[in-house]
Write a protein that binds this DNA or RNA. Structure first.
Lengths: 334, 334
DNA sequence: AACGTTTTTGAAAACGTTATCTAAATTCAT
DNA sequence: ATGAATTTAGATAACGTTTTCAAAAACGTT
């Protein structure tokens, strides 16, 4: 049996190549500054003994870990992970690795995670915060001095870049469409108001109502879940001609509650969502909804973080992506 | 403006507390070995200046990073992430942090990721491998000497612990049930045969057929996707009385294909799935399926990895979790 | 009071890199 | 050729910890 599989270090390489440690390091980091002869020799040795620089030692020395963190409310929600994937796809080309953490929607867990990330010396984070405007988060971020970009959900208490979608614009457009197609009474099923997205979407709804002079509407508050949509329907004062879900999940929940109550969708009630999540096109009837570019949002957030990390000054504090309405079967055609 | 927010190091603490660096380190790692007096003084200082040990330096010194990696085929699939969450919930109590990587079902990407993980000096990994029995993976793992546990999908070419569910048993039980309830002809819609789960489930189906002496069945091969279920139905030689999906997604796909073809589920054809994913209970009609304890599987995998990391010898190379059949609306009652 | 034991502390050496600084070698202009 | 300017290479000092080793202090025992 071999002695013990001790990782090969830069020293071994130096010795084998008959050069100094410095030279090997230079070959790795500033190859142009070493003569062709030595460079080739060193490279050969590196490949022969399959040397890989120890990232830990490198980090300690340079202070740079080439790791970024993601903080999202729910590690089990495909939407958040699609964002993460977008950001990763951009950032991995720049040589970064990733730690992704879920907070279970808990502010306390969020703080814990942020500290842990800091102890791991991540260079920066992309965060979709766990709702609320708790000052705790602001203080922590400020104190840790962590480069941060907010994604999908705003956090006003701190001056960091934000990338999201045009929530208000999206539902406003959809509400306009519903009015155009002859719907006259509405219900809006709002998600957690502690999140900026819920507030913005609600605002979009209100904007459309006011702009079009319709007053026959009802707003119910709940969460961004299927169950919430299901329950909220049963609290309607009066069944409206159109119900708008805060996202696809609540819209789907609303649809089954409605059909259990004996209302046919879309013949008697139209229902729309927001997200265009995977399943929406397969549900029966397939869901008319506002599509948001989730992956793209992550990708853009990645870009922004990279700009932050590479020291470039931010020209814009926000990037807001457009949404698109996708027409399917849950809206009655007149 | 302050000088520059230089992180406070163990040296600062030592100086402020009027003790040596060693003592501070000991307070952190072997508190019992330092006198009460000094220990308290040091702890006070640590808290006052909010000192947090630099994990990087610590890792360099000890060779231990307190980080484990997860490698899964698709970072966007809630099922995989629920497993990950299970493992994290166990392992975070032991002080670990996590890197989770998706391979996009690509063996090549998988290799790349494994190397990257190694360069990050993760202490171990939990992997749901990207299908196939490519020797590449075995070689890599062997060469890297990474502590590994396989989750959900077996990989026979290497002698590492495996935690999964009783795939064969689950579908066998379900098939038995379908036979009991009077179904006489079957179709099995198999997922990627490069995965052990697909093979085991198929085997369970065949076991039941043989045991019960039924020969009137058809096996179709595809993927673990909604679309695959949808397409496979159109290739039936003859519509069977019961179709079993390799997972819920393909079952759901089969249901819509079937209803588009004019067959009513469950009155004319029964359909069952495997997984009991989130949406299955809400689909219309709600899906009868085999539930597997996804979160628990991850949790157990976490346990096993921890045993590996803390040097304990594995008493068992495998942990196989039981499945449970959940009866809903897609099976005709006689 | 003298001596061995044990406990508590500090100095210093690692861990594997990169960066700074100086010495040697080369090039270039006279 | 000579000296100045430039390029190339090596020694060495960090980075922030933990651990080893030895010294100092405390404690018993005679």
């Amino acid at each position: 049996m071999k002695k013990k599989e001790n990782r090969v270090s830069i020293r071994h390489v130096a010795k084998l190549a008959g050069v100094s440690v410095s030279t090997v390091s230079r070959v790795l980091n500033h190859p142009e500054s070493v003569s062709d002869e030595l460079r080739e020799k060193v490279i050969r040795v590196i490949e022969e003994c399959r040397y890989r620089p120890n990232q830990i030692a490198r980090s300690l020395r340079t202070g740079l870990t080439k790791v970024v963190g993601f903080v999202i409310p729910d590690i089990t929600n495909p939407a958040f992970l699609l964002m993460v994937k977008g950001a990763e796809d951009y950032l991995k080309k720049k040589g970064y690795s990733f730690i992704v953490c879920g907070t279970d929607h808990s502010a306390k867990e969020e703080s814990r995670i942020l500290r842990a990330l800091m102890a791991q010396n991540v260079e920066g984070i992309i965060i979709t915060c766990s709702g609320g405007q708790r000052s705790e988060l602001a203080n922590l971020l400020r104190h840790l001095g962590l480069k941060t970009v907010f994604m999908d959900r705003r956090y006003e208490r701190i001056d960091a870049p934000y990338v999201g979608v045009d929530n208000a614009g999206g539902v406003e457009k959809m509400a306009d469409y519903l009015i155009e197609t002859g719907h006259r009474s509405f219900a809006y099923l709002c998600g957690e108001r502690t999140t900026s997205s819920a507030r913005e979407r609600l605002q979009g709804f209100i904007n459309s109502m006011q702009k079009n002079g319709v007053t026959n509407y009802e707003i119910l508050y709940g969460q961004f879940t299927f169950e919430s949509g299901y329950e909220l329907v049963r609290k309607f004062k009066k069944i409206p001609e159109a119900v708008m879900g805060g996202n696809d999940l609540v819209a789907l929940g609303a649809i089954v509650a409605l059909s259990e109550l004996g209302y046919r969708v879309p013949d008697e009630v139209s229902v729309v969502g927001f997200d265009d999540m995977f399943y929406s096109k397969y549900s029966k009837p397939s869901l008319t909804t506002v599509r948001q570019p989730i992956y793209k949002m992550g990708f853009e957030a990645g870009k922004v973080l990279w700009k932050l990390l590479s020291g470039g000054r931010m020209q814009q504090k926000e990037v807001i992506l457009p949404t698109e309405i996708v027409l399917r079967e849950t809206v009655r055609q007149r």
